[in-house]
Design a protein around this nucleic acid. Structure first.
Length: 516
RNA sequence: GGCUCCGUAGCUCAAUUGGCAGAGCAGUUGACUCUUAAUCAAUAGGUUGCAGGUUCGAGUCCUGCCGGAGUCACCA
């Protein structure tokens, strides 16, 4: 064992051994539980409301972690906590086995240990519903103490906390301790689960089929991002961790599934930020016989539905902004949005050189030498995106950076694509999907021209995808959204790391050992 | 990857111009048969992230490294 106990841990180890010397199993295999803490309290209150006579007739066995301990000599109180909440245990020396009470009084059973308590429900003189304990059993010893946080329940029912476990690095590296101690952290991840559940409910009810596609892919695609590379030993095959689901999902439309979705993990070998994690949860759906205007409507309904399910309201708060997710959202073309913000009508500058000149004249910083569409997108990101607080759909994107979207009728510049923004953050991306295999092949080849091999945004040509499309792909609308970002919005968390249980971090530095 | 800031006891934080490393919580010992941030008394606890350097003297100043945060670059 490489564990080097600190002072507090050494004391707990000694206590563990002392308990074992007394024949007490500190990690017994068997547990009995008749009530959660919430059920025990509810059962008592139901009986109490009926008749105060029978109040002490509710017998319970509850289990949980000791989160508060007050040994007052011959009587002791503790709060134990399970997932449903806390309940107070009331222990009195004459009401239980002396040997067991001694173990409590000597603090061999202590804060953070798991225990099982059997007794009857009662109300203390101070009025708190409690278990009058006759039997107490240690369920699991905590060899390391959790960070100390004390709670005070105020008269209005709110809980005030004293002390904190707030060091972000420690909270991320030891999420278990964060969850065990910080009530708010647990709430965030409960809501995250509700978000994902609500997304599934919405899509299932709208006739979508949930599917799973490969995470390890021989050819990556569907997005402009750098992939992770790995290797299959037996097959001697290089594989990529997927950067999107797009191409695999659309193949299923060829196969006859008319509406599919997947919620899963994407991996992008890029920088991290408050809204980028190395691996993140993506939702993509594709539906036959609809176009991007239908997808816009679905998007609005879906996001509003999730907000209602999770928060009971379409009003949300994020980074000091308040906004309403209820439809309809503002919709504006990319061309108009950029023109309003910068005065530049990029259509009037159909080549990179003239557009760069116009951008420079407007005094907007930019990197030269990038493709025309990237420069247009840069204008959006710099001048428009931060102002989009209320949910906003920006639609009709440049063709040369959108290899999977169908072009707008009688328009050589734009494709039927939209992105939606909330609170200044890009949330998702959707289009009327390209289904002409000849056009798709040309787009792949164009992308090969626009981005040379080895470029970060290289989009490899996927022959099998073209083969699938040649069998005939129904016209369809597709959608992708960063689920983590939606969770950020609905829980008002500033960083994506606060909505991912185990965010990606560098390896923990090992403490140097003094060499002998 | 660039720049800025941060790293002190288990947790949260102090430490004046470079001058004896400190507090609260929890821990340990004791008192207490209805407490609830329990209280009271006593007590212990440190590789100041790591490695060097400057100095009579470094938590403090300098260099490098490790880790984190922010920001820029990058990022559908």
């Amino acid at each position: 064992m490489t564990w080097e106990p600190n002072r507090l841990e050494a004391e707990r180890l000694e206590k563990t051994q002392a308990l074992e010397t007394r024949g007490i199993d500190c990690f017994p295999p068997r547990v009995e539980r008749t009530h959660t803490t919430a059920e025990a309290i509810a059962a008592f209150e139901a009986v109490e409301a009926d008749s105060s006579e029978a109040a002490e007739s509710v017998e319970v066995t509850v289990c949980g972690r000791i989160r508060r301990l007050n040994i007052k000599g011959k009587v002791s109180f503790m709060h134990i906590e399970d997932e449903t909440g806390r309940v107070q245990l009331f222990l009195r020396v004459n009401e239980m086995d002396d040997a067991v009470y001694d173990v409590v009084r000597e603090k061999l059973i202590e804060m953070d240990d798991f225990v099982q308590a059997t007794g009857v429900m009662m109300r203390t003189q101070a009025g708190e519903v409690s278990v009058r304990v006759f039997e107490l059993k240690l369920l699991a010893k905590a060899l390391s103490p959790l960070p100390v946080i004390k709670q005070q329940k105020l008269d209005d029912g709110t809980i005030k906390e004293y002390g904190e476990f707030s060091d972000v690095e420690s909270r991320y590296r030891q999420r278990y301790a964060d969850l065990a101690v910080n009530h708010d952290t647990r709430q965030v991840f409960l809501k995250r689960a509700k978000v994902i559940s609500a997304l599934r409910t919405f899509l299932d009810e709208h006739g979508f089929l949930e599917v799973e596609t490969p995470i390890l892919q021989p050819i990556y695609g569907g997005a402009a991002a750098r992939p992770f590379v790995t290797h299959h030993n037996q097959l001697d095959q290089d594989l990529f961790l997927r950067i999107s689901f797009e191409l695999y999902l659309k193949r299923l439309l060829v196969g006859g599934f008319d509406a599919v979705y997947e919620i899963g993990r994407d991996f992008r070998n890029e920088g991290v930020s408050f809204k980028h994690n190395t691996e993140f949860t993506m939702l993509e759906f594709y539906k036959a016989y609809i176009d991007y205007r239908d997808v816009m409507a679905l998007t609005e309904q879906m996001v509003a539905f999730v907000a209602e399910q999770v928060n009971g309201s379409t009003i949300a708060h994020f980074r000091g902004h308040t906004f309403n997710l209820a439809p309809p959202w503002k919709r504006i073309t990319m061309r108009s949005a950029i023109q309003e913000a910068t005065g530049i009508d990029y259509v009037a500058y159909p080549d990179v050189a003239s557009l760069e000149t116009a951008v420079a004249q407007a005094g907007i910083e930019h990197k030269s030498g990038q493709p025309w569409g990237k420069l247009v997108e840069h204008l959006l990101g710099e001048c428009v995106e931060p102002t989009l607080i209320e949910p906003t759909i920006i639609y009709d994107y440049p063709r040369d950076i959108s290899p999977f979207a169908k072009r707008v009728d009688y328009d050589d510049v734009h494709v039927e694509r939209f992105e939606f923004y909330i609170a200044g953050m890009e949330m998702g991306n959707a289009f009327t999907e390209l289904n002409d295999p000849r056009d798709q092949e040309a787009r792949f080849l164009d992308m090969g021209e626009t981005f040379k091999a080895g470029d970060e945004d290289e989009t490899p040509l996927d022959e099998d995808y073209l083969r699938a499309m040649r069998y005939g792909m129904p016209p369809n609308g597709g959608f992708g959204m960063g689920v983590d970002r939606l969770v950020m919005l609905l829980t008002d968390q500033d960083s994506i790391r606060d909505v991912i249980l185990y965010p990606h971090l560098r390896p923990e530095p090992k403490r140097e050992q003094a060499s002998p």
